[in-house]
Design a binder for these strands. Structure first.
Lengths: 225, 225
DNA sequence: ATTAAAACCTGACAAATATCATATTTTAAA
DNA sequence: TTTAAAATATGATATTTGTCAGGTTTTAAT
């Protein structure tokens, strides 16, 4: 099994603040998992016994609303950590994590992380900073949800996905979301999301090929009101 | 000036994890401020040179949206800390803080807090836990904003204010919000908030006396769809 | 106490969004 | 390959919410 000390992925998350010794120890007790597209990593309400370090792939974090609809709160990519929040406050998971494509993740047991959190102030501060950053992002999402139209939110998520997850050789998004996923990100009915994407297509803002989406006119997309 | 070691308020926030020595040191460099209803504690974009510990009063944290409307993200009360997030990630304030009634706050300079964050793992973990808790709350707000109707959100904020900030002898809310504030919490037009409050009144869910609001039928309010 | 400003309220209408129905296309299983 | 299921698409219509316009009441300053 590969070793944490040599893993590039950790450079993108709080694990970068661990010492070499700590990394070796974690490497010794981590387990690696392959997760197929559509599989659940963990479910809302589940007790998490550790954190997941995403080595490859993308997943969605969502929560079931009282009306029966899933709300996608965040998209998480290679390099990110999953489950630190629940671990820190010792609560069950508040969100479900589902793979959007095939993934490889490393599971690090709770005790290892908690141990380092208590003993390595640099690591602890790094986790704190990541959480502070997430908190600002969440606050911004609240404002967008409350104040912007569905069309605007959809335009923005398209730009977000383009900028954060990149595109392939033909400029199509690397992340494949269903129309229902798009609806669940912006918080609208699936039909509404489909309708607006069709409209964007007609207006030349995007083009599609099946589920694949490509931005054709970024500036116009940014101007959407 | 009163001393942090003897202040009851700190028991409700992360400062409770500081040692006696640390508290004495902080007490020596803190400044106390009285802030009148409506006054700004800090503004979005402002650089914060420390954190505010709320000794008395309530304030709103809000962010100006691109459409010119204010979105209230959080209501903050006696005992809470303001500004830790910005301090931890060394960013300017993401939200504005405005007093909803007369307040007393203590300002603690940045360096004191950062020093303790680096040297006292217990304090650092406590701040981390508070932030993890806030993050869950924010995620829940996102889901509510995205999936619930304005009427439901308004009913819920009434229940939230009742439960978190309490009522006076006549069962009226301790917090006085304008109709515009209510609109800015649930993310709707002021007229819509007014209309729905009127409807709640007609249906006997609440009663009002000027700005003062009292819940008359909690169960019916919880059932609002 | 008077008065101007702000806050509150309501109606009429417009715009945005949800819902339901149904057709078409794509996907995946047998 | 065939076929059933799922995803996508679009129209018609209902519901929710926003906007504008005009009132009344409350608040605060003189």
């Amino acid at each position: 099994m590969s070793k944490c000390e040599q893993c590039i992925v950790r450079k993108f998350n709080s694990l970068k603040s661990l010492t070499k010794d700590e990394l070796v120890r974690i490497s010794g007790c981590k387990t690696s998992k392959f997760i197929k597209k559509g599989e659940v990593i963990f479910d809302e309400g589940e007790t998490l016994n550790g954190v997941y370090c995403i080595k490859d792939g993308i997943c969605k974090l969502s929560k079931l609303s009282a009306n029966g609809r899933d709300q996608i709160v965040k998209l998480v990519i290679k390099g990110d950590l999953l489950g630190q929040r629940s671990l820190v406050v010792d609560e069950s998971a508040n969100l479900s994590a589902v793979a959007l494509n095939d993934m490889e993740v490393c599971f690090i047991p709770k005790q290892e992380i908690m141990n380092d959190l208590q003993k390595n102030p640099e690591f602890s501060l790094d986790v704190l900073q990541q959480m502070a950053y997430d908190l600002r992002e969440s606050d911004d999402v609240i404002v967008n949800m409350a104040q912007k139209s569905v069309k605007q939110r959809l335009a923005e998520i398209l730009i977000y996905i383009h900028d954060h997850f990149g595109v392939d050789a033909d400029n199509y998004f690397n992340v494949l979301l269903s129309r229902e996923d798009y609806a669940n990100v912006v918080g609208t009915a699936t039909e509404s999301a489909i309708r607006i994407l069709s409209q964007f297509k007609k207006e030349g803002l995007i083009s599609t090929s099946g589920k694949h989406i490509r931005i054709e006119d970024m500036e116009a997309l940014q101007r959407v009101e």
